[in-house]
Simulated assay, not measured.
Amino acid sequence: MVVTEFAVFPLARPITKDNPTLAVDLIENLKQAKAVLESVSGYRFHYFQQIEDPSIIYITGLWDSVAAHEVFLASPENQKLLDLFKDDLRWTGDRMITLWHLEGDVFALDPSIDLKSVFTAPTISCNRHFVPSEKKEEFSSKFKEVRGILEDYSKPFKVIGGWRIEKEQVDGKEREEWVLFSGFDSVEHHMAFAKTKPFEKYREIVGFVQGFEVKHLRAIEGLQ
Score class of each variant (00 low, 15 high):
2 V>S: 15
3 V>P: 02
5 E>W: 02
7 A>L: 15
8 V>A: 07
10 P>H: 04
10 P>I: 07
11 L>M: 10
14 P>M: 03
14 P>F: 00
15 I>G: 05
15 I>E: 11
16 T>H: 15
19 N>W: 09
20 P>K: 06
21 T>Q: 12
22 L>Y: 10
24 V>S: 14
25 D>K: 13
28 E>W: 05
29 N>W: 00
32 Q>T: 06
34 K>Y: 03
36 V>C: 06
38 E>A: 03
39 S>T: 10
39 S>H: 06
41 S>G: 09
42 G>C: 05
44 R>Y: 08
45 F>Y: 15
48 F>E: 10
49 Q>Y: 02
52 E>W: 02
58 Y>D: 06
59 I>S: 02
59 I>P: 00
60 T>Q: 06
66 V>T: 11
66 V>E: 13
68 A>W: 10
71 V>C: 02
72 F>I: 03
72 F>L: 03
73 L>R: 13
75 S>H: 03
76 P>E: 12
78 N>K: 08
79 Q>F: 11
81 L>V: 08
81 L>C: 05
81 L>Y: 07
83 D>Y: 04
83 D>P: 00
84 L>M: 11
85 F>K: 07
86 K>E: 07
88 D>G: 02
89 L>Y: 13
89 L>P: 14
92 T>S: 06
93 G>D: 11
94 D>M: 15
95 R>Y: 05
96 M>Q: 14
96 M>L: 14
97 I>M: 13
106 V>S: 01
107 F>P: 14
107 F>R: 02
107 F>L: 11
108 A>P: 00
109 L>H: 06
114 D>A: 15
114 D>V: 15
118 V>Y: 15
118 V>I: 13
120 T>Y: 02
120 T>W: 03
122 P>C: 09
122 P>F: 07
122 P>D: 09
124 I>Q: 07
124 I>H: 01
124 I>P: 04
124 I>A: 05
125 S>Q: 13
125 S>N: 09
126 C>I: 05
130 F>T: 08
130 F>H: 14
132 P>F: 03
132 P>M: 08
134 E>A: 11
135 K>I: 08
137 E>Q: 14
138 E>G: 12
140 S>F: 04
140 S>W: 00
140 S>A: 15
140 S>H: 04
142 K>N: 12
143 F>V: 11
143 F>H: 12
144 K>P: 02
145 E>K: 14
147 R>P: 00
147 R>V: 07
148 G>R: 14
150 L>T: 01
153 Y>I: 09
153 Y>N: 06
156 P>G: 12
157 F>M: 11
160 I>F: 01
161 G>E: 07
162 G>W: 02
162 G>E: 08
163 W>L: 15
163 W>G: 12
164 R>F: 01
165 I>W: 01
167 K>S: 13
168 E>L: 15
171 D>T: 09
179 V>G: 04
180 L>Y: 00
180 L>Q: 15
181 F>M: 08
182 S>N: 13
182 S>Y: 01
184 F>R: 06
185 D>Q: 08
186 S>N: 08
187 V>D: 05
187 V>R: 10
191 M>H: 11
193 F>S: 03
195 K>D: 12
196 T>F: 03
196 T>V: 13
199 F>M: 04
199 F>T: 01
202 Y>M: 05
203 R>F: 08
205 I>V: 15
208 F>V: 01
213 E>A: 07
214 V>G: 05
215 K>Y: 10
216 H>K: 04
218 R>Y: 14
222 G>C: 08
